[in-house]
Design a binder for these strands. Structure first.
Lengths: 335, 335
DNA sequence: CTGAAAGCGCTTACAG
DNA sequence: CTGAAAGCGCTTACAG
């Protein structure tokens, strides 16, 4: 057979109407046990599965969730994606993955997802112009932006950067550090701006100040390069806080393997995210934990409420952060 | 407006028939310049994009490609996924991501993808029973299995495991190693079976034999545990070849940080895949490179040919492998 | 509970 | 080149 099996085929074999076949595959529709049995027998004999596209055309829901990610080069993004996909699957939602290579592709990717009538879009990358936001609002499709603070018109889920970096500042100062540097991620990213800003403020609130800083792009290589330039300066920093763990791993490798420094004896290094590798014995990175499972379940909950038709204003959810002390930072009591 | 804009709306505004609107958005359809202009103006004014679902229902093609992956915990899988998604996007194909948590979910995930009328399915995880294969063949949907050798009825793309592990055997023996161990991945995986088998054979072909071996599940933790047990035996191995890089990183960290061994002085470690981290200065892992871009472009090419209707028998493509010598293995000339 | 029929938003022969 | 109409495979009021 060169044609897909349709509900019509099943109906014919089962001796019922096509509508009855449809009802058997529609949760909550009323069908007699007898009819249901005939249909199920016929369906399994023919190997019938309802066409999700046709179903999506008639119902309001397709079960498709658009996920806009960056280039998936970041270990954090990748771990988040994995957890997110697992959670979506548990809800029987299918992720339509829009991987963007550049941050300005985000808007386009959202519109492409819309073309497939996705029930919602989760944006985990790049930033979105207000024009795009208002454009997507015409579609009445829920949009959740991850890693972004309050944004007009859409839901956002973000970790508590301010609290996290405050913990870092306190920890480093308690560790006796006075030349504290910062290596940031992509300057255009919200998380970078917030982390840098709040970290600087937190130091100042405690009577200290940022000693030096550099910018990267959240990559390992950028962490290496930035660390190298900071550490070879006439007066190098004695601690580096990094915008994410990947940068921190690059910085640590540069300090140890290129410059021959001991971490944390010569230098404390702290990251942000708590990706799996931060706990590996080769790194044992002190970092701010950003609980990915909580982020994901907040997203799923929000979608459930929106799908249920609840009329709530755009949410700006913050997920709590915490400090995970490992071996890459000087312990306060040893000073 | 609470309703999506349809081609009907555009037609009304542009003063043409709905069919003409459709033609403007269908590549290769003939429309007069005048009509095209009117339609394009109206479409952009209304913010119209064709409904990809409705289009998919009438055409043979949806532009959707189902991708069945494992739990995305593996660094190799994740890097491959990233490259794959980039390549699909370049073709205007959208990946419908089916992330499975257990290997026996593969078949179900394929059928779910089928329900969305995907144009093809790329399976990059788990194994598939012959029943599922024949079931999917009824749908006439191309299926490509990655990381699998020749399989009846479907296309496969796999790296040249045999050649790769032969290079490892030769390299280790040339390095003077005589107690060579192997830590495998998931015993149910094709790649594991092939690598283990061919590695054992390669050693024997060169007059040596496998000294010890252990099984893991391709994870970092399993690499650590297996290395620990092998290296604390009365006579430990002096070299370990690992079924993938992630295992090798775990093994290396266990050797160095838990047992205090020097790599490669006390022990050579070799991996498989050549993931990004294998080149990081903290590891500098000697490994077999499996070119992901070639794997991906082979898949894209194959899909293009299948979509074009070419009648070719199931392909069993092998991608060449090569040895990347870094610092985790003893150099032959130093012995 | 069940069938006939309209409709979801497109594409594509079929005439003209 | 263009319009009217059939059809893709479903769901869902509407009657009965």
């Amino acid at each position: 057979m060169n044609r897909r099996i349709t509900s019509e085929d099943v109906a014919r074999l089962a001796g019922v109407s096509q509508a009855t076949v449809s009802r058997v595959f529609t949760a909550g529709a009323s069908v007699s046990t007898k009819a249901r049995e005939k249909v199920e027998r016929a369906a399994s004999e023919l190997g019938y599965t309802p066409n999700a596209l046709a179903r999506g055309l008639t119902q309001r829901r397709t079960g498709l969730i658009g996920i806009v990610t960056g280039d998936l080069t970041s270990l954090y993004d990748t771990q988040l994606l994995s957890i997110l996909c697992g959670a979506l699957r548990a809800e029987q939602w299918q992720p339509l993955l829009m991987r963007t290579a550049r941050t300005d592709e985000t808007g386009g990717a959202m519109l492409e997802a819309m073309a497939y009538q996705v029930d919602a879009i989760i944006v985990a990358a790049g930033s979105v112009s207000p024009t795009i936001v208002s454009e997507t609002q015409t579609y009445h499709t829920p949009v959740i932006m991850m890693g972004k603070g309050e944004t007009a018109g859409v839901d956002t889920i973000c970790c508590d950067n301010a609290y996290g970096v405050r913990l870092v500042a306190r920890h480093l100062l308690a560790g006796g550090h006075r030349r504290i540097a910062y290596i940031g991620g992509n300057p255009a990213a919200f998380s970078e701006q917030e982390r840098r800003h709040c970290f600087t403020e937190a130091l100042e609130a405690q009577g200290a100040s940022l000693f030096a800083s550099a910018s990267g792009d959240y990559s390992y290589e950028s962490g290496q390069a930035a660390a190298l330039s900071l550490l070879t300066a006439p007066t190098p920093p004695d601690a580096i806080f990094c915008g994410n763990d990947t940068i921190a791993l690059g910085a640590m490798d540069a300090a140890r393997h290129i410059l021959g420094l001991k971490v944390p004896r010569d230098l404390s290094i702290i990251g942000f995210d708590d990706i799996t590798m931060a706990g590996w014995p080769g790194y044992r990175l002190t970092t701010i934990q950003q609980p990915m499972d909580k982020t994901v379940s907040a997203a799923v909950n929000l979608l459930q409420r929106r799908f249920a038709g609840e009329e709530l204003p755009p949410q700006a959810i913050r997920i709590p952060t915490s400090l995970v002390i490992r071996a890459s930072s000087r312990a306060p009591d040893l000073v």
